[in-house]
Simulated assay, not measured.
Amino acid sequence: MADSNFIDYVKFCSRSGSGGAGSAHFRREKHVPKGGPDGGDGGRGGHIILRGNSQLWTLLHLKFRKHVIAEGGKGGEGGRRKGRDGKDIVLEVPLGTVAKDAETGEVRFEVNADGEEIILTSGGRGGLGNDHFKTSTNQAPHYAQPGEDGIEEWIVLELKLLADVGLVGFPNAGKSTLLSSISAAKPEIGDYPFTTLVPNLGVVGYRDDKSFVMADIPGIIEGASEGKGLGLRFLRHIERNSILLFLVPADAESIKEQYGILLKELEEYNPELLDKRRILAVSKSDMLDEELMNEMRADLPEGIECIFISSVSQYNLDKLKDSLYQAIIE
């Protein structure tokens, strides 16, 4: 994980700028010995702003930025001159980035549109100059407002991948092999659990130059919703997928049982995931003959489309792509 370019979690200290102080200045010119108060307002402190960028897919560029500090506003001046506002700091983030309070875990907002700008940490307001405080009974106020302090807080940014199809399955179910077979993605493939340690995205070509995006999510194990295995770290990526493709190998002891466990983990993490369209693919089916497939169909879960496939022999991959694309456009 340390040498991976895919970073979907960063934590940093966000400090906005303090507002500038108002000025307690009096107009003093030749022939105008008592010109009255003319102190200007202080400038606003700089904001910390998140901006969506559709060209980014990772938070890698923020990984080593532990402190983000905006500029403070300048003080007001005589002649009702307002102080300069502090310079804002704009952090470019991928679409699907969620901002949270690091201490409470409270979700602040989610950036979903390219070019969308949302203030993460607001700068302090500038103080009012003494010109604002003159009255009929106090025509020469010698005071002005100080600037408002900036805010310092610890922020967590989490990324949820956006894809049309999310691959869901236990470790070593053949998800990476499938993705590499039907797209140009080249994820690491091995015959041992947890080969995939970061999500991989692949663009799947379809008929008539159409395409859709598939995400290979690192394998789920029983108890993942409680933090076991890779746990909650990657379950959040499934939330932004339109279709969930469950992958269970043909040599599983019970396809129905494995599918039920996967479904239970998703439900415990977020019950709304069960509202998404689901398709079940039985991988590694090149070892089966037609008679054995017919026998296994009796043990398949009900209420979900099931397709026997083989990524190695390309068996039924076109049929799978047909089903996925049809589900996407419906």
Results as ranks from 00 to 15, higher is better:
156 V>P: 04
158 E>F: 13
158 E>S: 14
159 L>R: 07
161 L>I: 14
161 L>E: 10
162 L>R: 13
163 A>Y: 01
163 A>S: 10
164 D>C: 10
165 V>K: 01
165 V>R: 02
166 G>H: 03
166 G>P: 02
167 L>C: 14
169 G>D: 08
170 F>N: 05
171 P>F: 06
171 P>G: 02
173 A>K: 03
173 A>G: 12
174 G>V: 00
174 G>K: 00
175 K>P: 01
177 T>Q: 03
178 L>A: 08
180 S>I: 05
180 S>L: 07
181 S>L: 04
181 S>V: 08
181 S>Q: 11
182 I>R: 01
182 I>N: 02
183 S>L: 00
183 S>K: 00
184 A>D: 15
184 A>W: 11
184 A>M: 13
187 P>V: 11
187 P>W: 09
188 E>C: 03
188 E>A: 11
188 E>T: 08
189 I>A: 07
190 G>N: 14
190 G>K: 13
190 G>C: 11
191 D>P: 09
192 Y>F: 15
192 Y>E: 08
193 P>A: 07
193 P>Q: 09
194 F>C: 08
194 F>M: 04
195 T>M: 02
197 L>F: 06
197 L>R: 12
198 V>G: 10
199 P>E: 06
199 P>D: 09
199 P>A: 10
199 P>T: 08
199 P>S: 11
201 L>G: 01
201 L>R: 01
201 L>H: 02
202 G>C: 03
203 V>W: 08
204 V>T: 05
205 G>V: 15
206 Y>I: 12
207 R>N: 12
208 D>C: 09
208 D>K: 13
208 D>N: 13
209 D>T: 10
209 D>P: 08
211 S>W: 07
212 F>Q: 00
212 F>R: 06
212 F>Y: 14
212 F>P: 00
212 F>G: 00
213 V>Q: 06
214 M>R: 03
215 A>G: 04
215 A>C: 14
216 D>H: 00
216 D>F: 01
216 D>G: 00
217 I>D: 06
218 P>A: 04
219 G>V: 00
220 I>H: 03
220 I>T: 09
220 I>W: 03
222 E>G: 14
222 E>K: 15
222 E>M: 15
222 E>Y: 15
223 G>Y: 13
223 G>E: 13
224 A>I: 05
226 E>R: 13
227 G>F: 08
227 G>W: 07
228 K>V: 09
228 K>Q: 12
229 G>V: 06
229 G>C: 09
230 L>F: 14
231 G>C: 07
232 L>D: 10
234 F>K: 04
235 L>P: 04
235 L>D: 05
237 H>E: 11
237 H>D: 12
238 I>H: 09
239 E>A: 13
239 E>P: 03
240 R>F: 08
241 N>V: 13
241 N>W: 05
242 S>G: 14
242 S>M: 15
242 S>E: 15
